[in-house]
Design a protein around this nucleic acid. Structure first.
Length: 214
DNA sequence: ACATTAATTGTGT
DNA sequence: ACACAATTAATGT
């Protein structure tokens, strides 16, 4: 069901075929359906997930229990946070919820050290994951700190569209509001404006991003 | 096909 | 943010 070709396609950076074989040998294949809480704050991380398909939402909670959306994970990527955690306390700082049915390769974290020194491509992979997640989080931070809700909403739609690889999003205004820590009404009104501008079309439970959406 | 109902979206304050 | 209206999709009859 999962072979080297599969890995090559989804993780082009992991070129080393010895590494690919080793991944296949030690990883367990897992299918998770939408809504599953893959990892929660405070839980111990035992596996590094390599995503083959689907989409996962990574968020974090502050002292008051407010959830903050950090980014979406898509296929071909891994959770930089879990890479970091296995060098540190082993506990997760984040929550990972499956947005769209996902298939994963779960690699036990005990291989991390070994592979870091053994495989150059694994090192690159880890570094690149860090770099891109860090970058992504900076953008999210900018968006929260410096941009108004309409820009944040645009970014949200873009991100979600990229993660799910579709222009047709199935989501309610309420859920978006929750992810952006805003109110449903505010989101509804902004979406309506965007529809009037002609960059999206709205329907019950769906939002379609038009070509003009940049 | 029609009526009922729950969920989602729209609007005024 | 709240209250309520309007619309939509799902479900039963």
């Amino acid at each position: 069901m999962v072979d080297e070709l599969h890995i090559k396609r989804q993780f082009p950076i992991l070129q080393d075929s010895a590494l690919q074989e080793e991944i296949l040998a030690v990883a367990t294949y897992k299918e998770v359906e939408a809504g599953t809480v893959l990892m929660d704050i405070g839980r111990y991380i035992k596996f590094i997930p390599l995503m083959l398909s689907g989409s996962i939402k990574i968020s974090r909670e502050d002292e008051n229990g407010n959830e903050v959306l950090l980014y979406f994970l898509e296929d071909g990527s891994t959770c930089a946070m879990s890479l970091m955690c296995c060098m540190d306390s082993g506990k997760s700082n984040i929550r990972a919820v499956v947005e769209e049915n996902a298939t994963l390769l779960m690699v036990p974290i005990k291989y991390m050290d070994e592979w870091m020194s053994k495989y150059q491509s694994w090192r690159y992979f880890v570094m690149q994951s860090y770099a891109s997640r860090f970058d992504e989080m900076l953008k999210t931070l900018d968006s929260i700190a410096f941009h108004s809700m309409d820009k944040r909403l645009e970014k949200y739609l873009r991100d979600r569209s990229n993660a799910l690889k579709t222009r047709k999003l199935s989501i309610t205004h309420q859920q978006i509001a929750y992810d952006l820590n805003s109110s449903r009404e505010a989101v509804s009104r902004l979406l309506k404006k965007m529809e009037n501008m002609g960059i999206i079309t709205l329907g019950r439970n769906k939002i379609e991003l038009k070509e003009q959406f940049s």
